[in-house]
């Protein structure tokens, strides 16, 4: 299992500056959460997210990954809010003591449409942007290199962690540890797994920090980028347009008196 979901392709969306994509994602999230109408979220999915996914060529993976996250949430959301929404008065379907209210379903639609946009848009960013590119683009813009180090390093550590956990699990099974049983028994299984895993990983830290300090990691001098991330004037302008759009979306409901 790979650590990142990055889908390595050569589309226009992949080649955009990561900061542009990040700002686009933030603007989309602000717009759908600022305007309290579910069809705004619908329009954004149809007009922006779906075409972008098709152009990037990662649409299939996006659909598969997002459905796995969204289906359980949406199912629970509609059932729970349809049945128990506190402001629900108009009963549209009744069976015994169970009644579904239209207010509850509308609430679920409002919240659900926004969750769909949030998940689809951020998944698309993750699929089309290599975390390393995002980190170097943000570091160029003044983010502390410590953030970049921590995030990139973690992404490399998680597979190492899994490999180590698997080998410890196999070793414990080899000496007769059974993985089946009641929840309480399964908690007990965690202990012989966790302690060698954690102690091993943390004792590695010491050597790493010495090596990093020897290469001036703690220095606060300004660094230059080894691989500059490509950017263009068009993207720079569109970033500002997106920011203005997001601010306009925040102001719209207040101006129109929707609240």
């Amino acid at each position: 299992m790979s650590t990142t979901l990055f889908d390595n392709r050569k589309s226009v969306i992949h080649r955009l500056n990561p900061v542009t994509k990040l700002i686009a994602l933030l603007a989309i999230i602000v717009i759908v959460f600022a305007i309290p109408l579910w069809w705004v979220a619908g329009i954004i999915i149809v007009v922006i997210v779906v075409p972008a996914a098709v152009i990037s060529g990662s649409g299939g993976r996006l659909l598969k990954l997002s459905l796995r996250i969204l289906l359980p949430i949406l199912l629970v959301l509609f059932i729970v809010q349809g049945l128990t929404f506190p402001g629900g008065t108009t009963v549209i379907w009744q069976w015994g003591i169970i009644d579904i209210t239209s207010e509850g379903l509308l609430f679920a639609l409002g919240v659900g449409s926004r969750i769909v946009v949030l998940v689809l848009a951020s998944m698309l960013l993750v699929l089309t942007t290599h975390p390393g590119d995002l980190m170097s683009a943000l570091s160029e813009r003044g983010m502390s290199p410590k953030f970049a180090y921590i995030i990139s390093s973690t992404l490399q550590l998680i597979p190492a962690f899994r490999v180590r956990a698997d080998s410890i699990l196999l070793a414990q099974q080899a000496r007769g540890l059974s993985l089946k049983g009641s929840p309480f028994r399964r908690i007990k299984i965690m202990l012989p797994l966790l302690s060698p895993l954690v102690l091993g990983m943390f004792t590695d830290v010491e050597e790493r920090s010495t090596a990093m300090e020897a290469r001036a990691f703690g220095s606060t001098a300004k660094r230059t980028a080894l691989i500059p991330v490509p950017d263009s004037t068009v993207q720079n302008v569109s970033r500002w347009v997106l920011i203005v759009l997001a601010l306009a979306a925040v102001a719209t409901p207040i101006v129109l008196g929707l609240l």
């Binding site: 965690m190 943390f202 590695d204 830290v205």
Partner: peptide
């Protein structure tokens, strides 16, 4: 983050991986 010495910064990724791996496992 600016307060953290290198020894701490080197430990943070391990801690994050621990959070995520154990969280997923559980």
């Amino acid at each position: 983050i600016h307060r953290l010495p290198t020894a701490t910064v080197a430990m943070v990724p391990v801690a994050i991986a621990l959070n995520i791996v154990v969280g997923q496992l559980v």
